[in-house]
Amino acid sequence: MVPTTFYVLLSAVLFTIGVLGVLIRRNAIVVFMSVELMLNAANLALVAYARERLAVDGQVLVFFVITVAAAEVAVGLALLVAIFKSKRTADIDEVSMLRG
């Protein structure tokens, strides 16, 4: 069996990549994708720990995370479409009227 650490390490790297994606990408859709990546990384860690402890709880948590992720994406994309209608761009740098 592969030790839990390996999975967690992978999850840590994936999480960081997700964070980086949010930080450096300007395409709002890709930013959302990066957030999804972060959540998935967390899910991986949860499942790995669940396996280590032989407790199903971790897997149940993943179930909730996936649901929440779906809800967030739905609202986010709806918003994006709304903004796109008037701004004609999905560049997140373009929504920067509010400042100071």
Binding site: V22, S96, L98, G100
Partner: peptide, 17 residues
């Protein structure tokens, strides 16, 4: 404070990070 509040989400996320 004002300048950091540049309006760019990326910037905010960076400060967060």
């Amino acid at each position: 404070v004002r300048q950091l509040q540049s309006g760019y989400v990326r910037m905010y996320a960076l400060v967060f990070t």
